[in-house]
Write a protein that binds this DNA or RNA. Structure first.
Lengths: 112, 112
DNA sequence: TTGAAATTTAACCTGTTGGTTGAAAGTTTG
DNA sequence: CAAACTTTCAACCAACAGGTTAAATTTCAA
């Protein structure tokens, strides 16, 4: 499983995000992925490697063509990490306060 | 407004993600942010600059102490971008802000 | 079989990142 | 004032990122 490090790093480049958007529509060959970009095929090939290592796409070679396919599951970890900012801590702190209130009623938060 | 590039790049480093997690609990001075990390204060200071440029935190100097504060709004664009892939929910910022207001009412940094 | 197509590899260049150390700057405190 | 504290700045370094071009590899097609 790719790390959060590699997923976020892969997402930090605009070319790679554009590639992911393109792959939302359909699987594509490397040459077709590269077509709209003003950079060499080799550069796009490198971007595709980065996306693959991050688990955001997969590549399957059929004949001389390598098909690129979106793997949106890899976004889940990153998304969950962001979600945890809003919700995980709230749950934990609420549970902790409830625990304190139950175990130490006199010193429970909000009573002093 | 910080770009998606800078937000994702800022999130791609584990030290910086850990710092954001720490700031969930409370605003902190630079020295205190640096304390758990096995690197120089200058290195942590640089990480805080990266987070600030990404808009993920803000820094306010009071006296000789610079207080670091989480700015979760910056996650919104990144979250929306991910949401465009259709399968993930955006961070619930309203819930997050309500949580912060409840957990840290009119909190003055450095009071403890 | 010859050649063209699809893609990667290799070598290279330049700019950035993440770390270091030591000095500097601004702020409090004795 | 002088010393201590908090933070950044400056210079430096190794490693990496993102791009290039040219050559190599594999596969298809005439």
């Amino acid at each position: 499983m790719a790390s959060l490090d590699t997923v976020f790093a892969a997402l930090s480049d605009p070319t790679r995000r554009a590639i992911l958007q393109m792959l939302l529509e359909d699987d594509m060959a490397v040459t077709d992925v590269a077509e709209p970009f003003e950079m060499s095929l080799a550069a796009v090939s490198k971007h595709l490697t980065v996306l693959t290592l991050a688990g955001l796409i997969s590549q399957e070679k059929r004949g001389r063509v390598k098909w690129c396919k979106l793997e949106p599951d890899a976004l889940r970890d990153a998304s969950i990490w962001m979600q945890s900012f809003g919700q995980f801590e709230a749950v934990n702190l609420d549970a902790f306060e409830a625990f304190l209130a139950k175990e130490f009623p006199i010193h429970s938060p909000g009573e002093d």
